[in-house]
Design a protein around this nucleic acid. Sequence first.
DNA 1: ATAAAGCTTCTAGCTACTGGAAGGTCAAGC
DNA 2: GCTTGACCTTCCAGTAGCTAGAAGCTTTAT
Lengths: 132, 132
Amino acid sequence: MQIREVEQSAGLPAKTIRYYEEIGLVRPNRQDNGYRIYSTEDVHRLRFLQRARGLGFSIEDCRALLSLYDETGRESADVRAIAEAHLDEIDRKIRELKGMRQTLAHLVHACHGDDRPDCPILDDLAGIGDGV
Amino acid sequence: MQIREVEQSAGLPAKTIRYYEEIGLVRPNRQDNGYRIYSTEDVHRLRFLQRARGLGFSIEDCRALLSLYDETGRESADVRAIAEAHLDEIDRKIRELKGMRQTLAHLVHACHGDDRPDCPILDDLAGIGDGV
DNA sequence: ATAAAGCTTCTAGCTACTGGAAGGTCAAGC
DNA sequence: GCTTGACCTTCCAGTAGCTAGAAGCTTTAT
């Protein structure tokens, strides 16, 4: 299978697929003309990567997950540990964004948003009203 | 005020303060020896940046907000538009993370996480069970 | 024969910093 | 006067994860 076809089946752009090869995640063979040729196993790994990245796992997490996937004698606890750490990280990010959201929504609500120059959003950013 | 002191009052590392100068957000004067010297106005702008970045505004948003802040004849609607667009973006990210969270929490829950090799997390990433 | 589509490698750029090296400046202590 | 240490400076490189684009080879169709 050539790269253009793999784009479809893995759901990844060709550039990304080549990049994943560059960093050693997938190693397709080459045809005599130098073209990459992907086995079903390669495509499988790429799809694995596409899903894992879609769940927000870092490239290094993906590398670890792939190597656990290759290991027949792996312990599911190892996989679960990676997933749980990532889950904690996602929760942390959600909390962080919710904090921003709350402040910002409050400010947007307070701003009349017309042609007048006074603006609670800028006032807040400038620190007006916090005693500085 | 020298940079080490500004670190404290603006709540930003010196490296970041210099970086903000490099990209034209803050322009401190220099002493004869070449050292940066910050006016209260400079510190004010840095604190503004610290807060805006803390709310997740991009550097380019910050640039726009600062220039609106400088403009006495600005319209608050312009500020509000930037803030609302950012709010939408935050909401989008929260939704995205929540989607990941849900899938991942489900998988972690399904994984027994012991020394056995079978693992629903890897099975899902590999696409087992989705008909492919 | 030639044009279009597909492949290759390589370099550079994106965001927003961060770390580190090499070196100038200044105040204190001996 | 000299040294030590804490400042300060600039410049270069690296982080994550691609993405854009240039220059050039191969294959296929007309």
